[in-house]
Design a protein around this nucleic acid. Structure first.
Lengths: 346, 346
DNA sequence: ACAATATTCAAAAACGTTTTTGGAGGTCGG
DNA sequence: CCGACCTCCAAAAACGTTTTTGAATATTGT
């Protein structure tokens, strides 16, 4: 005896209040054509019964999920890159203010990135998509654009005729290099982040242009592409030192590379700062506390995230765009950007 | 002219193949009562058309989402705690091997944790739930247990009669303290992680029991609860030094606290290691590279994550449990655990 | 006071799948 | 050769909402 214990449904709320199912639905979803008193009654009953609309059913009928998905790629997960976490904080804030939920999914392999996106879009798992690590030619961007699916990226592509937010890495590269030049350095190495990503190329261009502006040509032997696993900053420094190409300063694409580079310097008895100037990027938490303090660039990731989120909400609300936002980073001077020993600083 | 551009549906695949809708569904979902040839034909047609089953519809009908949700709490997001990232990596691996997708959602405020769980469960957004930061009396655990919803936690509660994985923080506290005692220290401070979490209490007990075992009573003035924002490890060290309670060694609940503590020591001219021994926990990436190298405990988070994921899959497959797994951490000896200056080590 | 309009709600259709049910045709044993 | 049992597939019901449609009642303007 006893009913078959059905799952609690909107029908139960309707029975409880003596109203129709449709009225309950309209009351709960904030439609205007329901009397205030009725709405209150419905809300009270729903609260009392502990009813919430089934997600699958409601998104099937309404054709929207109220979910925005952020896809984070493997390299971000394995080595803790503080970048995207702070970012997500801001995104979440902006989204939930407009009734959207942020959902994060991980792309384990590089190849699955596209598959995950296809799956999300074609199965209708979310209303909008967010992702970073854009490449100059990015399959994902092209595909989404062609399908007209709402998305915003962190980082640009070659064409960049879609919605994005980005940190101005060209400017970062330029400023860092210029600062090192002003300190008297002329042999300045650049340890780049993986060049398959657009932002790495931007930074590289900034670096080269700054050299050019001061009549210093760029030397391929001083430009080394670094990764997080194989070929780290330490490997690059080892290479620079053992090959005797003689840099007196290094600009690193990010702090993890810079930290790794410092590691190798120690092993060669080279002091980061006095013996070899060093500038990083990202201002990771330990940057301030390592050695003399790593000079680096700080980005307001909370703000970047908020903009990213708000941009997505705007798109979702039918705002056509394109929306594009370039963010400046701030140079944080600490101890590792020292004049060239024996050189003449301006 | 031109059709109303309906969304691609299973109907289209049925028409394309000349089969019925139900057969297409059965073929795509791997049922056995469909001829191999037919299955191939269906799969080819689906692939050709680019069809994928709508998520909302399929999960509405089948009453399952194939999604497992990991809820991460605010403190984990703001300050990059490497802990949960490596963990998630393993979880994802274990889940996707069994056809489940991992979805991550963030609880911004402490108070929303419970709300998020209620929402996920009552709206039927996922099949299983994962979360950490368990407290001795944990409302979430009780609620989920009462509802019979599948969940596994990272960390225990007072009762712990549910499924969990956990690192043995009692053992960590005990080992760390014992090592410091063996090095000749008797005034050993413990900078705890927030004591509202169960694991912090476990570590504290390990610390106290080790002291007791050597006939050293624990001194409340040497036990300081630390947080990530207010009252950091630096604040605690400042307090210890200025109050003159005279510890010669410190065991920190995690590396972030330890790093922060080192910071303050520098300001007081106290060298971490020679002047004050220090042991942390977690083995964050920089731990090896800071100062003399921070002695700490390493946990195999990938393995922990895999177990967590596998445990969840087992539950979802009807395996009754309870499943519980306690993981050992490994002491990584580096430079900061030195004998008490002028003391007599065993 | 009457038509026109607003307000409030109910009934039923619709969303796109999966599951249930059952039937047609083939195979096998007696 | 007939019935029993497989194998494979089609038709229809079902999942739990939201949206559409339309009707009853209340309100307003003239």
């Amino acid at each position: 005896m006893g009913g078959p214990a059905r799952r609690l449904g909107i029908r139960d709320v309707a029975e409880q209040t003596g109203l129709s199912v449709s009225t309950v639905s309209r009351a709960l979803n904030g439609y205007s054509d329901v009397k205030l008193e009725t709405r209150r009654k419905v809300e009270a009953a729903a609260e009392h019964l502990g009813y919430r609309a089934n997600f699958a059913a409601s998104s099937l009928r309404s054709k929207q999920t109220n979910i925005v998905t952020f896809m984070v790629s493997k390299p971000w997960t394995k080595f803790v890159d503080p970048f995207f976490l702070s970012l997500l904080d801001g995104v979440e804030l902006a989204l939930q203010a407009q009734g959207y939920a942020l959902q994060i999914i991980m792309a384990r392999e590089h190849e699955t990135e596209f598959e995950i996106i296809r799956n999300s879009v074609e199965r209708g798992r979310c209303d909008g998509l967010l992702f970073g690590r854009t490449r100059p030619e990015d399959e994902r961007v092209e595909w989404l654009k062609a399908r007209g699916f709402p998305f915003v990226t962190v980082g640009r592509t070659d064409k960049s005729d879609h919605d994005w937010v980005d940190v101005d890495h060209y400017r970062i590269g330029h400023m860092a290099t210029e600062r090192l030049i002003r300190l008297g350095h002329t042999r300045i190495a650049h340890l780049t982040t993986p060049l398959r990503y657009t932002y790495s190329v931007h930074a590289l261009h900034g670096y080269r242009d700054a050299l050019d502006a001061h009549g210093i040509g760029h030397d391929p032997a001083l430009e080394i592409e670094c990764y997080l696993s194989r070929k780290t900053g330490a490997d690059a420094v080892t290479e620079l030192i053992t090959r005797g190409v003689g840099p007196t300063a290094i600009f690193c694409g990010n702090d993890v590379i810079a930290l790794s580079a410092m590691e190798a310097m120690h092993q060669f008895g080279v002091r980061p700062g006095p013996d070899m100037a060093l500038i990083g990027c990202d201002d990771v938490p330990v940057a301030a506390h390592v050695g003399l303090g790593l000079t680096t660039f700080r980005q307001d990731l909370d703000a970047l995230g908020m903009r990213l989120g708000r941009m997505m909400v705007a798109k979702l609300n039918g705002d056509a765009g394109p929306h594009q936002q370039l963010i400046d980073a701030e140079l944080i001077l600490r101890g590792t950007d020292l004049p060239q020993p024996g050189g003449r600083a301006e």
